[in-house]
Each structure stands twice: as C-alpha cells, then as structure tokens.
C-alpha cells in the first residue's frame, strides 16, 4: 500500500532535512544559529528523490544559492525535531528493546510519533544526550526542564544514586529469575546501598550483593 501523496511528500522532506542536518554535523561547520552551508551536489547524492528539493526550496524550508544549501528558520526547526525523534527511536530500540537491526524501523518510527510520545520516550530513557552511534540528540523541551532536576525518570541502577530508594520499573538481565526468587521484580521497592566494590541492594528486609553487569540491567525510577 502506498502512502497518500501528501504524507509521502512530508516524509521525503523530513528525510531531506535530516540528511542536511547530518551533513552539517559531518562538515563540522558547527551547529550555530544559521549561516552554515552544504554543497547542493553532496546533499543530492544522499537523497533518493533529489529533484523534489526544488519543492522544498519553494516552501521555504531551505535556501539554495550558488550551489550551496542552507536551512531557513522553519526548516532548521523541523530538521532538529526529526533528527531528535530518529535518534530517540534508535536509543529505545537499541537499549530497551535490545534489537540489533533497528535502523529501518527507526526511520519509519520517526514519522509516526506525536510530540507527546516523543517527550514520554525521552523522559523514559532519561533524556539521553547521544544516539547509539554517539551522535548528539538535539535537546527537547523536556530535557531542558529535566536539566533543573537531578534524576531521570527511568535509569539503570548503575546510573542511580547511592543511598536512595527506588521502584523497579523493569529488569533486563539473565539473573531475572534469581532476583525474582528473593522478591525483586518489577514494582518492588529497593534501596541502593552502595556501588563499590560490588553493588549492594536492599529489598524489604533482604540485602543482596550483585556485580555491575547485573545492576546495569535493573531499571528503576523514583518511587
């Protein structure tokens, strides 16, 4: 089934804007407030449907002059959003769902989610600064709010504070059955007693010691 022409057009524009964003990053010309340009040929070679660039030009998403391309204000904002959604999707697929092949799905996912879902994912992931390929994820509104607080909503124990109480959100470790057998399951309240030389946790009146690898697979949030 083919997507409606309008959606298809929008998707193409998103891809083009994302490519342009990436080229900017690669060229190292800094992600300042505008002025940076990329050669039109280079952008065209990274796109499937290059002629449609003209349309984008007309819609004032990009400016083309003298074989160089640059964002307009509106184009820059949209490019930023789409890149952010793509990289958040990558984080979600790689870290939480533990998928190996996720690139294509991330490409489809980025077009499908609303700003609310985007914000929820970002918060859930703990406002990650980079994608799995180590490229920066553009900050969103939620990240700026978060910067004032101390902890992400959901983080692994390895990224949590010693001496604090947490609620377990989910577990991703081969030790899951062992942990369950002493009463540590999703929903349990735990305290992180210490991290070094081994992790020490308290669940109800039970204290257990585990190594960092296990602690990395225990995801918690503030109760």
């Amino acid at each position: 089934m083919r997507a409606a022409p309008e959606t298809e057009k929008r998707q193409f524009e998103d891809e083009a804007l994302e490519s342009l964003w990436e080229l900017y990053e690669k060229s190292g010309s800094g992600m300042g407030t505008g002025g940076e340009t990329v050669s039109l040929e280079e952008l065209k070679s990274s796109l499937e449907n290059a002629p449609a660039l003209d349309g984008m030009h007309k819609e004032e998403l990009i400016e083309i002059s003298g074989g160089r391309v640059k964002f307009t204000g509106a184009g820059r904002l949209r490019a930023r959003d789409i890149t952010r959604r793509h990289r958040l999707a990558e984080r979600l697929f790689a870290d939480i769902l533990a998928l190996n092949e996720y690139e294509e799905d991330a490409c489809r996912f980025e077009h499908a989610i609303s700003p609310e879902v985007e914000e929820a994912i970002c918060t859930f992931l703990g406002h990650p600064p980079t994608c799995p390929h180590n490229r920066p994820i553009p900050r969103g509104k939620c990240c700026k709010l978060y910067a004032k607080k101390v902890t992400p909503l959901v983080a692994s124990l390895a990224d949590s504070q010693v001496g604090e109480d947490y609620k377990v959100v989910f577990l991703r470790t081969p030790m899951i059955d062992r942990l369950a057998s002493i009463g540590l399951v999703a929903g349990s309240l735990i305290r992180l007693v210490q991290k070094k030389p081994s992790y020490v946790l308290k669940v109800d009146e039970t204290t257990i010691a585990v190594e960092e690898e296990v602690a990395k697979g225990v995801f918690v949030k503030k109760p």
């Binding site: 470790t173 062992r178 002493i182 020490v200 039970t206 257990i208 010691a209 585990v210 296990v214």
Partner: peptide, 9 residues
C-alpha cells in the same frame, strides 16, 4: 556465573 549473593545481617 554472575555474582549474586544474599547478605545476612
């Protein structure tokens, strides 16, 4: 096997 041990009081 990964380290997991219950610590008594």
């Amino acid at each position: 096997s990964e380290f997991f041990l219950e610590i008594p009081p």
